[in-house]
């Protein structure tokens, strides 16, 4: 038995329905502990992965994840649903904490003044900005409906032209084009909504 999802099996028995993002956000703003639990369950992976991919250091990323949720909970009075999604707000806080961690790291490196230490913490080849884009786009791509998702994967990763995609799938070219356009626009919207510019 190499089937690796026993957790899903046991979890599926109850068939518990899911809170909407808005319901979680409202509960969060009201200070309900259960909403914090739900927010962590839903967006903890996003926050954590943003930190991991931006910082490249698992321990630092865990610290950032913890700090983000602690700060968010303590500062929940400043969250307003009118000005954006809770996910976007959390991503914004995450970006601040990542920037703080990077600043602390460079201070540390300067004070230690050790070449090896500095090399160990050299920033990755990508900016945190690009890391955030990739995590959000990768996440959103997995939520796109079919066949939009499959067509976009073909365009992104198989390097197929839209005409080739139409040929291979048997879908009319116009249909392929409109799915790809809509898919791209939805990915972009995710960057705009949850990108939480610094």
């Amino acid at each position: 038995m190499t089937w690796g999802a026993t957790g899903v099996l046991s979890a599926s028995v109850a068939g518990v329905p899911t809170l909407t993002d808005e319901e979680i956000a409202a509960g969060f703003a009201r200070g309900e502990d259960s909403a914090l639990v739900e927010a962590y369950r839903r967006w903890g992976p996003l926050v954590h992965t943003l930190a991991v991919r931006s910082l490249g250091d698992p321990a630092e990323a865990e610290d950032v994840t913890q700090t983000v949720f602690v700060s968010a909970w303590r500062g929940r009075g400043t969250y307003s649903a009118a000005s954006g999604t809770l996910a976007g707000w959390l991503v914004g806080i995450t970006r601040h904490k990542i920037a703080d961690a990077l600043a602390a790291r460079s201070r540390r490196d300067r004070s230690v003044a050790s070449a090896t230490e500095a090399a160990a913490h050299a920033p990755g080849p990508v900016s945190p900005e690009a890391a955030v884009d990739r995590v959000l786009v990768a996440d959103e791509l997995t939520t796109l409906p079919e066949p939009q998702q499959q067509l976009l994967r073909m365009a992104f990763y198989d390097d197929l032209t839209q005409a080739q995609i139409a040929q291979r799938t048997g879908l009319p070219l116009g249909t392929v084009k409109s799915h790809i356009r809509r898919g791209l626009q939805r990915l972009r919207r995710r960057l705009e909504v949850d990108g939480g510019a610094l």
Binding site: H48, R53, A130, D133, A138, D139, L184
Partner: peptide, 19 residues
């Protein structure tokens, strides 16, 4: 920018739960 992000993303960029 969206296309660039998608094409450079790997599975490691998919949100994964913290410990």
């Amino acid at each position: 920018r969206v296309v660039g992000a998608a094409r450079t993303a790997t599975d490691e960029d998919l949100p994964a739960a913290p410990p």
